[in-house]
Simulated assay, not measured.
Amino acid sequence: MRYEAMSEKHLDGMVSVWNSEWIRVFPMREQLIAQNVFEDPNWLRHGSWVAIEESRDRIVGFVVAKAYREELAQYGLKSDAGWIQALIVEQDSRGVGIGSGLLGRAEEALRKLGVQRISLGNDLQSRLFPGLPEPEEATKSWFEKRGYVCKAEVFDLLNSYNHRAGVTLPEVQDALFRVATPEDRERMTAFMRRCFPGTWDYQHREYWKRGGTGREYVLLEREGNIIGFCRMNDEHSPLLAQNIYWSPLFDEPLGGIGPLGIDETYRGYRYGISIVQAAIHYLLGRGSRHIVIDTTPFVEFYGKLGYTSWRTYAKFEKTIDLTGSSTFRPE
């Protein structure tokens, strides 16, 4: 077995090994790997590796690591954060230490950067999963033996609509909904900075930098001020967003909803559920026939709108002790 530092030349092999394992549940496209790994400024190149079976010169596994950049400090994100975005080894090559070898290399690179807290997935703007996907007990146990602890579970929810289905734009007290435009960029940035500093602020700014026009946001306005937002995605969005990653599984267009937030000053008016209904209204009008609400623990809440659990993710973290010496030794 040979380990190589990951680079763009490995893209085809990475997609191949991924789909050999997960094409029926999480079908991977080259566009998604390119967008979420090689084009992500948080990608840690020297912490990402591929395992190559030398006899056939074929990739049989890989790990993707990401790390905090200094620029993230302006969003209030802590500098001790690191992520294992993906770790996959093909079924026939498991049980011989390849997974441990890949994970150890990624963790060592993160440790050398001063990372103290490693999450499985959930890597800001360009994550593939918000946690360990569809976790089997054997997989959870494998990570637990390596120091990872499960913190919570979150879910992707799904609802399907027929061609005659329609959801009217809800009426809300003293406020109105509309789709954002390019002219809203500065006002939205000010709103996010004030009400939702951190990950959502960062994601919003990256959206505009990477070609966003505003059509992916429902705005809630009251007295001319933005008091809420909801992200909505479809096949025409400039970026492949997490709630439409797996659209190849559907014969009809898939739409996605989330994240969403309401200024805490205006909570208690049912604005939250209403802005979801507004996003559904706009997505159905654009032709979506299936809609995913991603990364939420609130299954019962969204069940009121007909949504049911579709995907499950376990959020795992590991704390690194920087005071001791490394325990990883490459083969």
Results as ranks from 00 to 15, higher is better:
Ile226Glu: 03
Arg231Tyr: 00
Glu223Thr: 11
Arg210Ser: 12
Ile257His: 08
Gly211Trp: 07
Leu254Phe: 03
Glu252Arg: 15
Arg210Gln: 13
Glu235Phe: 11
Met232Lys: 12
His204Glu: 02
Glu235Gly: 14
Ile227Arg: 07
Leu220Cys: 08
Gly261Thr: 02
Glu206Gln: 11
Ile227Cys: 02
Asp201Lys: 08
Cys230Gln: 15
Leu249Val: 04
Arg210Met: 11
Glu206Arg: 11
Trp200Phe: 14
Ile227Lys: 09
Trp200Lys: 05
Lys209Thr: 02
Trp200Tyr: 10
Tyr245Val: 09
Ser247His: 06
Trp200Gly: 02
Gln203Trp: 04
Gly224Pro: 05
Glu221Asp: 06
Asn243Tyr: 00
Leu254Trp: 07
Leu254His: 10
Leu220Phe: 05
Leu240Asp: 15
Pro238Glu: 08
Asp234Glu: 14
Cys230Met: 13
Trp200Ala: 02
Gln203Arg: 03
Gly214Phe: 05
Pro238Cys: 07
Gly255Pro: 02
Gly261Tyr: 07
Cys230Lys: 08
His236Cys: 02
Gly261Arg: 06
Arg205Thr: 02
Glu206Ala: 10
Arg205Asn: 00
Glu252Val: 10
His236Asn: 15
Asn243Met: 14
Gln242Tyr: 11
Tyr207Asn: 01
Phe229Ile: 01
Ile227Glu: 05
Glu223Tyr: 08
Glu252Gln: 12
Trp200Gln: 04
Ile244Lys: 06
Pro259Lys: 05
Ser237Arg: 08
Arg222Pro: 03
Lys209Cys: 06
Gly255Val: 04
Thr213Arg: 15
Leu219Met: 09
Thr213Gln: 15
Leu249Trp: 05
Ile227Asn: 06
Lys209Asp: 05
Gly224Phe: 07
Asp234Met: 15
Thr213Ser: 14
Glu221Arg: 09
His204Leu: 07
Gly255Gln: 11
Gly224Met: 09
Asp234Phe: 05
Ile244Cys: 03
Pro259Thr: 05
Asn233Gly: 14
Glu252Leu: 15
Asp234His: 07
Tyr245Thr: 06
Asp234Tyr: 04
Asn225Glu: 12
Gly224Val: 03
Trp208Tyr: 05
Asp251His: 14
Gln242His: 11
Glu216Asp: 10
Met232Val: 01
Asn233Asp: 14
Gly211Val: 08
Gln203Thr: 04
Trp246Asp: 05
Ser237Gly: 11
Leu239Phe: 00
Arg210Pro: 02
Pro259Val: 01
Gly261His: 02
Leu240Pro: 12
Asn233Trp: 14
Glu223Lys: 12
Glu206Asn: 10
Ile227Gln: 05
Ile227Pro: 01
Gly255His: 06
Tyr202Ser: 00
Thr213Trp: 11
Cys230Glu: 11
Asn243Thr: 15
Gly224Thr: 07
Arg205Ser: 08
Gly255Tyr: 10
Glu252Tyr: 13
Gln203Cys: 05
Glu206Met: 01
Asp251Arg: 13
His204Asp: 08
Leu240His: 11
Asn233Ile: 10
Ile227Thr: 00
Leu260Tyr: 02
Lys209Gly: 00
Leu260Ile: 11
Arg231Pro: 04
Leu219Gly: 01
Phe250Glu: 12
Asn233Ala: 12
His204Val: 00
Asp251Ala: 14
Leu239Val: 07
Ile244Gly: 08
Arg215Asn: 12
Leu249Glu: 03
Ser237Thr: 15
Pro238Phe: 00
His236Tyr: 14
Ile226Gly: 00
Leu260Gly: 06
Tyr245Trp: 13
